[in-house]
Nucleic acid binder design. Structure first.
Lengths: 194, 194
DNA sequence: GTCTATAAATTGATAGAC
DNA sequence: GTCTATCAATTTATAGAC
């Protein structure tokens, strides 16, 4: 048992776990959490059910793993795009780009997240996460619109949130049919003109 | 077996069916289709599983029943609010009111519909339904924005659809926390001002 | 570290009594 | 028209071999 083999094992372990998590994410996203069986996940990951249970305590644990993994990556993206003191409409554009970049870099996850936010009882963790995140986004957007001199910044922030949500939903539901880039561009133009 | 008892039976039948459908709708809407068990539906409806299977051939049949029932009611609403030749921004207001009236008159159903549109394979019926409906709405909105003299009516229609979807989603997900009436009002104002 | 075989629990669906 | 009891299939989870 040389020290080197220990590293190798760790690599193998994390690779297997990653394969399983990836399979779970795609199946959850596609068929929904409840409709996805552990067998299907193992099969898609190319491993046995036994191995899956060796790494994860069950279906719910897989979901936890997925959410945490995505959150970590999400925070990285957020930190890199930390907005400097720029003109408000430019910050707005950065937010728009940031949101859809995040979604595009992990579409299945966001699709899953939409599902989980709509139904109840699956995961309070997710609920807390999105609630906090939305409140933060609302606060930020309100401040920006205030800077832009819009009369009712809070209401405009709610409207803005609805636009992003609606666009994201349609894009995530039918990616091929939704003209995302076109609408992103149009959205930016509408807010600079206004 | 008098003719009168026949009517009575029919009433009893339809009442039982309605109770079961209602229970199914609320559970599907709350926990999701796949996560809802037939036993739970029967229990909530206050009947036995046996009776449920006497009226419906299974879980999928219940979903069919729910969708058809809601579609029938939905068409009634649509026909009463058939827009006459009014100023375009007024038609727009009517559409906005119509959409949210429809949602509000059967919130659980629309929550369920959102779920079904996001995940795949559960029901192609639903997919066809929403796809056709969205295309129709997009066409209508484009025409209206053209009348209003907006430069890129098609893009504006997509934006408008995203707004409605986003608002509906947030309202359906957290009805108590979303200031629906306020945002409806604000949305209308923004489109008349513009 | 990975697999096969099996146990235990849940669930969709049916049959027969009242 | 309604219920209880039961079947058959699926699914989560575990145990033991390699």
């Amino acid at each position: 048992m040389s020290p080197r083999s220990k590293e190798q094992l760790e690599i193998i372990r994390s690779e297997s776990k990653a394969k399983i998590l990836d399979a779970a994410l795609h199946l959850f996203s596609q068929k929904g959490y409840a409709a996805t069986t552990v067998s299907a996940i193992a099969q898609r990951a190319g491993v046995s059910k036994g191995l899956l249970y060796n790494y994860f305590s069950g279906k719910n644990d897989l979901l936890h793993g997925i959410v945490h993994q995505a959150m970590d990556i999400g925070e990285e993206i957020l930190q890199t795009s930390q907005a400097q003191s720029a003109p408000p409409h430019q910050i707005l554009c950065q937010i728009i780009d940031g949101v859809f970049f995040a979604i595009d870099s992990n579409r299945p996850f966001w699709k899953l997240l939409f599902q989980l936010t709509i139904q109840e009882g699956v995961m309070d963790m997710v609920k807390d996460l999105t609630t906090k995140q939305q409140a933060e986004q609302l606060r930020m957007a309100t401040a920006i619109f205030e800077d832009m001199g819009i009369e009712e910044p809070s209401k405009e922030a709610y409207l803005f949130a609805a636009i992003l949500d609606g666009m994201a939903l349609q894009y995530v539901a039918l990616p091929q049919e939704y003209p995302l880039q076109q609408q992103i561009q149009y959205l930016k133009e509408r807010y600079v003109k206004k």
